[in-house]
Design a protein around this nucleic acid. Structure first.
Lengths: 155, 155
DNA sequence: ATGCCTGCAAAGCTTTTGCAGATGC
DNA sequence: GCATCTGCAAAAGCTTTGCAGGCAT
């Protein structure tokens, strides 16, 4: 029942919002771009505009329901806020994204911030590498540099 | 003598490239956007197009002469590659960017990657916080969320 | 002289915004 | 019924690209 989350966020319960929340919840663990979500909506024969997707995602972010990430590639991706903080590691071959949490890293970040005289508010850590999974095609999917992204990386 | 760096990178020594390298070298420690550089070129009465700035920066990045960073805000910033790796901490009030290196964090990143079965190729760590410097105006300069950036943050 | 470079302008991509109509409460 | 929300289309912002002329070697 996602409707309650919406209500709690002070947002009216509308079709676009519920559907988008559904899609995000159904892709738990994956990280979807606005376009990804828009495409899924179209597949579900929902008549929802891309602009609305962006608007809704922005509202969700403001409400703390989702997090926005900027992995390399110029496109933002969104994931449902699972309550507990984590960082990301991205496979540069297949685009797979895994999440992790390392207390040691977190602590040392605070140390560094203190050392430099900063009050740390948040942070952004992304590791880029090559996963050695057998089903990982060794062709670039996430790549640094000028926009360069494969559309169908995670069907 | 930056010309040698250019030659070594297989790039012809041209006015735009040298000037841009000069500007980057003259702003050591600062992080300039393409527009920042373009503006400085105009101030120096150099007749160089913004497109060229982008092209040159992209070439420099490919050649390993500069690094491109995406701090929050939708605009990329560039800094001269100083040879040794470091991460960044950004003040959300005044936009100041400081650099740091923490071996502990680096090590633990490798640990995490190994634990998850990744060969780590690179990473991206940015801490966001509030520097408590006396001359730090407590007004937002770098802010998360929808594009929202003050133009004149670092004359 | 030749081939890499540049400036200009136009296009491209993601994201945002304005407005009139639609919908939730 | 009223305020909020949505769809469409157009705009905005950053970045890239095409092309004809210019410059380094």
């Amino acid at each position: 029942m996602q409707s309650n989350d919406l209500r709690k966020a002070g947002l009216k319960v509308t079709t676009p919002r519920v559907k988008i929340l559904d899609i995000l919840a159904g892709s738990e663990g994956r990280h979807l771009s606005a376009e990804d979500i828009y495409r899924q909506l179209l597949e579900h024969a929902e008549d929802i505009g891309l602009a609305t997707v962006y608007r809704v995602l922005t509202q969700f972010e403001a409400a703390g329901l989702v997090e926005r990430h900027h992995f390399e590639g110029g496109t933002a991706v969104f994931e449902l806020n699972q309550g507990e903080h984590h960082d990301h590691i991205v496979c540069m071959d297949c685009g797979r994204v895994e999440e992790f949490m390392d207390c040691g890293i977190e602590e040392r970040q605070l140390d560094v911030a203190k050392r430099l005289g900063f009050d740390i508010a948040e942070h952004n850590l992304i590791l880029y590498g090559h996963c050695k999974k057998p089903n990982c095609p060794n062709r670039p999917a996430v790549k640094r540099g000028p926009r360069d992204q494969e559309p169908g990386a995670g069907t």
